[in-house]
């Protein structure tokens, strides 16, 4: 039997966490979720932080409509402390999207607004990333390498998603995957991954943020699945796998010598989203 959780909760996976969670029902909600967070073999064997970050929040808004936000961030491994950038961005995205922000805006406005906010990210958010100390007792070549990385900033790619009041909003940037599917697994929206786009703590958004909003009742009523994952899972179609098969697939990829951090989330809806229900 699938485990159940509280009506309002925040789930965060980062650094050395390791979990593949089967379908989890939410009492009184009309969706369920499953997720996986598995650091790369290299991270595990060398006891280093994974570079991915996953956060999922769900609850009820002031009008008693159910809502959730999620963020998957993939820290750029060759940047300075990509793990810190991923964690900071994930937290910031969820905090930003959890509020009323975005309730009434179009996709274009969503993208512009997010771009502006990221460009003007407050110093108290960015400074701790850039101020991550370089240890004293390291060789000069490594110090030079870290200083060179720090010049271009800590970097992360990200996907943020939000559902509230019969509306889905997404913002995607970089080499991550996102699909919205109907009940027959036909695509209603697919984000095309982009290896060049990312956010840098020094330079802001490099490349582009791709916003997407689904708010017409007809399309919303067709939405049954949201799937998002980091590039460690490649481009496999995983939504139809059973929990056991998904776990087996993730473990197979994770055992490869060149495995990358893997983060996966799938949300399945049981009701039409076009007519938001009160809880």
């Amino acid at each position: 039997m699938a485990p159940s959780t509280a009506l309002t909760d925040t789930i965060k996976f980062r650094q050395s966490h390791l979990d593949v969670r089967p379908w989890t029902d939410l009492p009184s909600m009309y969706w369920r979720y499953r997720l996986g967070y598995v650091p790369s073999t290299e991270s595990l064997t060398t006891q280093q932080n994974g570079q991915d970050y996953l956060e999922l929040r769900f609850g009820v808004d002031s009008k008693r409509h159910p809502k959730f936000v999620f963020a998957i961030c993939d820290g750029v491994g060759s940047s300075y402390r990509g793990d810190v950038a991923a964690r900071t961005m994930g937290d910031w995205l969820c905090n930003t999207m959890w509020g009323k922000w975005g309730d009434t805006i179009s996709a274009v406005q969503l993208g512009d607004n997010l771009w502006k906010r990221l460009k003007e990210m407050p110093p108290e958010v960015v400074n701790p990333i850039d101020d991550e100390p370089i240890p004293d007792d390291i060789p000069s070549l490594m110090r030079s390498a870290l200083n060179r990385q720090r010049e271009v900033g800590s970097q992360t790619m990200f996907i943020g998603g939000r559902m509230t009041q019969g509306k889905l909003s997404f913002a995607s940037c970089g080499d991550l995957r996102l699909s919205v599917l109907d009940g027959d697994f036909n695509s209603l929206y697919t984000y095309r991954p982009d290896t060049d786009s990312r956010w840098s703590s020094k330079r802001g958004v490099i490349g582009e943020i791709v916003p997407h909003v689904i708010d017409d009742p007809e399309t919303m009523n067709r939405v049954r699945h949201i799937i998002a994952h980091s590039d460690g899972l490649k481009d496999a179609e995983l939504w139809w796998l059973s929990d056991a098969e998904l776990q087996e697939h993730i473990e197979m990829l994770q055992k490869r010598e060149d495995s990358d951090d893997i983060t996966y989330i799938q949300i399945e809806f049981t009701n039409d989203l076009g007519q938001p229900q009160l809880l």
Partner: peptide
């Protein structure tokens, strides 16, 4: 040679350790 060594170290760094 020093530049390429720095680049390789940067591409091999996770956090503050060199893989």
């Amino acid at each position: 040679l020093e530049d390429v060594a720095i680049s390789m170290v940067a591409r091999s760094t996770r956090g503050t350790s060199i893989q």
